[in-house]
């Protein structure tokens, strides 16, 4: 009798409480498989929906919000729509960023995504937003690097920001390309916390490190 009750209990627990458990990991795994395959804005929206569903259930987890924000930020870059619509994507990203930072205020990755979000706002209207959001992005990257100087994604955001500024001021970017190359070469040394933690950045650093080569063709 006792054993049976216990069994019933276990079954119910299995159904109702996913947070942090294998169900959560499985759902995240599936979502990340989809995320990896995303090409177009509708793809990213679908992935964002999936992360949102997970975030709604796994209330204590910051990663679903992290990825949801990432989807909307990428959408703001790739979708060919007017600035106002891009801002509505970034409004959605902001909601997830706020939630994520509440859950993981000391997470270097979270602040890196925050910096990425500010860059998204900047790109919508660089002429009028350049100064404000450039500064805010810089501040967020600074926080991320302070929490973890070796985080290659934070390094990427930092170099990317610096490169934008250098190109604007017509400064030499060779050194930044070298920094990107070093960060790229050391990328695999950075430990992967879990299968569902962020791993992006290697390809982006690769692109940055080669931008000096393309620059010289101009």
């Amino acid at each position: 009798m006792k054993r049976t009750l216990l069994l019933v209990g276990i079954l119910f627990v299995g159904i109702t409480s996913f947070a942090g458990g294998p169900e959560y990991e499985k759902a995240m795994g599936q979502a990340l498989v989809k995320f990896e395959k995303c090409q177009s804005a509708p793809d990213f929206r679908e992935a964002a929906n999936q992360f949102e569903r997970i975030a709604n259930v796994a209330q204590g987890e910051w990663l679903p919000s992290y990825y949801r924000a990432h989807c909307f930020i990428i959408m703001s870059f790739i979708d060919k729509v007017d600035g106002e619509t891009k801002d509505t994507y970034l409004d959605e990203a902001e909601k997830s960023i706020t939630k994520m930072l509440e859950l993981a205020p000391d997470e270097s990755e979270a602040h890196t995504m925050h910096a990425f979000y500010y860059s998204g706002r900047l790109v919508v209207d660089p002429g009028t937003r350049g100064m404000k959001f450039g500064m805010l992005s810089g501040q967020a990257v600074g926080k991320a690097l302070k929490l973890d100087p070796n985080n290659p994604r934070a390094q990427y955001m930092q170099i990317q920001n610096e490169m934008g500024k250098a190109q604007f001021f017509g400064k030499d970017i060779t050194e930044l390309c070298q920094q990107a190359k070093i960060a790229h070469d050391k990328f695999d040394e950075y430990p992967v916390v879990s299968k569902i933690h962020p791993t992006w950045g290697k390809r982006e650093l690769q692109n940055l490190s080669t931008s000096c080569n393309t620059e010289s063709h101009d």
């Binding site: 169900e23 929906n49 569903r53 709604n56 259930v57």
Partner: peptide, 12 residues
């Protein structure tokens, strides 16, 4: 692109 899901679960 609408999000349709069963509340309280991952299914949607």
């Amino acid at each position: 692109g609408a999000n349709v899901y069963i509340q309280g679960t991952f299914d949607g």
